[in-house]
């Protein structure tokens, strides 16, 4: 099955189908999510209206982690089975993934301000997200830190594998550091135990973000494919004596 996707033209055919569906899902889920988030869900008895920030903060955190894991899987495909498309996939997902991490951090600080009077609170989850954001920046900087763009693919993929192995270690060490310094985490972000009326907007917003992520990633992959084709054409022009290979 893996080789099936490897062929760019077949890939373009598949994405030509998936792309519009993803965009449609994104728009629909976004509208419905906004409606649910602002009109059809109750204010939290404790945090009042600010719970509505959670509807963007929590899905973004989920997506930031999901995107990084997806990139790591693509990196493994690239390193083990030498799939050129997997590398292009990882590169395409990097910026959307990093933007989810950034959104989580910023909405987290807007959440912290009214609740705890500070723009940034060293909560375990926010700190882990900050480090995840650094890992994203490290990947992006390494992926295009080489003279010839394709030279950066393998080291950057290796960094993703190292990063994904270190994620649980970082998560655990930050939680360990947090519990020892601050006692149990102050920010209750809800979870399965929260009011079902709040769970639905959360899931719908998550679906909207997932749709957006897939759409933008496909768009960026096609751009990278076109870029690579352009580079090959330019190389061929600069060395005419090699003839048409």
């Amino acid at each position: 099955m893996f080789d099936y996707l490897a062929n760019p033209t077949r890939f373009r055919a598949i994405t030509a189908v998936i792309f519009p569906v993803a965009v449609a899902v994104t728009v629909a889920a976004l509208l419905y999510g906004l409606y649910l988030a602002f009109f059809a869900s109750p204010a939290d008895y404790q945090q009042g209206e600010t719970v509505r920030i959670m509807y963007i903060h929590v899905p973004a955190a989920w997506m930031a982690l999901l995107a990084y894991l997806a990139m790591a899987v693509a990196a493994i495909f690239y390193l083990v089975w030498r799939h050129p498309l997997a590398d292009i996939g990882a590169r395409a997902m990097a910026v959307p993934g990093a933007s989810f991490a950034l959104i989580t951090l910023l909405t987290g600080s807007f959440w912290g301000r009214p609740m705890w009077g500070t723009w940034w609170v060293w909560d375990a989850r926010l700190t882990s997200m900050l480090i995840l954001f650094f890992l994203y920046l490290g990947y992006i900087a390494l992926a295009d830190g080489f003279e010839r763009p394709e030279r950066g693919s393998k080291p950057a993929s290796l960094l993703l594998v190292v990063g994904v192995i270190n994620l649980p270690i970082i998560k655990f060490s930050v939680d360990w550091w947090n519990t020892l310094h601050q006692g149990s985490s102050v920010l209750r972000f809800g979870g399965p135990s929260i009011d079902p009326a709040m769970l639905l907007p959360l899931l719908v917003m998550a679906l909207a973000m997932l749709g957006w992520f897939i759409s933008v990633s496909i768009l960026r992959m096609n751009t990278l494919l076109a870029q690579r084709r352009l580079n090959v054409l330019e190389i061929r022009e600069q060395s005419p004596q090699r003839g048409k290979v």
Binding site: I131, F134, L135, L137, G138, A141, L142, G145, F146, E147, R151, G152, P155, A156, L158, L159, V162, G163, N166, I169, I170, F172, S173, V174, W176, W177
Partner: peptide, 28 residues
């Protein structure tokens, strides 16, 4: 150092890769 070998960035760039991975070391 291996990952950034041959890259055109040097100096502080390696910190962007080393520090996130070194934070657990600092904590423990």
């Amino acid at each position: 150092a291996g990952l950034t070998l041959g890259s055109r960035r040097s100096g502080v760039f390696i910190a962007l890769i080393v520090l996130p991975l070194a934070m657990p070391v600092l904590i423990f």
